[in-house]
Structure formats: structure tokens, C-alpha cells
Amino acid sequence: MSEKTAITLHINGRDYAIAVEPRRTLADAIREDCGQTGTHLGCEHGACGACTVLVDGEPVRACLMFAVQADGKSIRTVEGLADGDTLHPLQQAFMEHHGLQCGFCTPGFLMLAVGVLEREPDISDDDLLDVLSSNLCRCTGYQNIVKAVRAAAQQMRGNRPAR
């Protein structure tokens, strides 16, 4: 057992002052120390992407980052996506296009897509497919996830026609 370090995680606009061992992953800190269990762990190897969150706007596999590395950084998780009762366009699109079945991988896919679409709103369909292939889903066969993200992308661009 090693010493714990005091850090602050800014998650969805709220500060969490916690003490963690240096080896504590960001994913475990978010889930266990901050109680935000919407972020899921599917492999803890960085392979499946279920734990994807946004750190300073960039999609990050929270199982591959230490919590201490995220000290002071701004973190967004699935719990912070909706604005009150108004769902984010991606959450809405996942429901409308049946982009989820068991829902375990869904938070990771949502955060991956949010991060990418905010950075690159005009991303091409093909590049988007590349990005989405970084996470694993075992239920949907991806078709409806891709459909949902494309639909949300269009809505997020203000309904102007896709390129």
C-alpha cells in the first residue's frame, strides 16, 4: 500500500476533492471515489473503450489514465451529458435509432462521439466509422450506433445537410 495523494477532479462541473493512491486509475476514481458509476469498465486494458470519458474535451480511456494525471482537469462523463431533463442530441439519437441494447458500452460510445463531434463537427462518414471502431459493442452490430451518431452529428451541425 502506498501513500495517498490529494487531488481534485472537476467532473461535470463539480469539484471532487479525493485522496488516491498513485496507481488508482481515473476510471476507478470516477466510479469509486466520486460515485459516478455511469462510466463502465469492460476490459481495463484500453481495448474496449467502455470507460471513455472526456478529459479537457478529448476522449480518453479512463482505465489507461491515472487519476493523479487528471488532477485539476475538467472531466465529462455520461452523467453530465444531458442539460437537466433535456437529453443531449446523441442520447436522443441513440434512443431513436436503437443504438443500444444492454447499454453497458453506451456511455463510452456516447462520450467518444461527443468528443469527436465537438472537435470535428464536419467529420466524414468514413472517418467517423474509423473513430467508432475504437470502441467495442457486443449487442448492436454497430449499424444503429453509426446511424445514431450520424443523425446526431447532423443535428449538432444545426441541421445543415451533410457533406
Binding site: E79, L87, Q91, F94, M95, L100, G103, L110
Partner: peptide
């Protein structure tokens, strides 16, 4: 779906 897309699963 509403619970699952909001992290409330």
C-alpha cells in the same frame, strides 16, 4: 433506454 443513456443504469 432513458436510464441507460444517462448513466443511471
Amino acid at each position: 433506454d432513458p436510464a441507460l443513456v444517462t448513466g443511471r443504469g
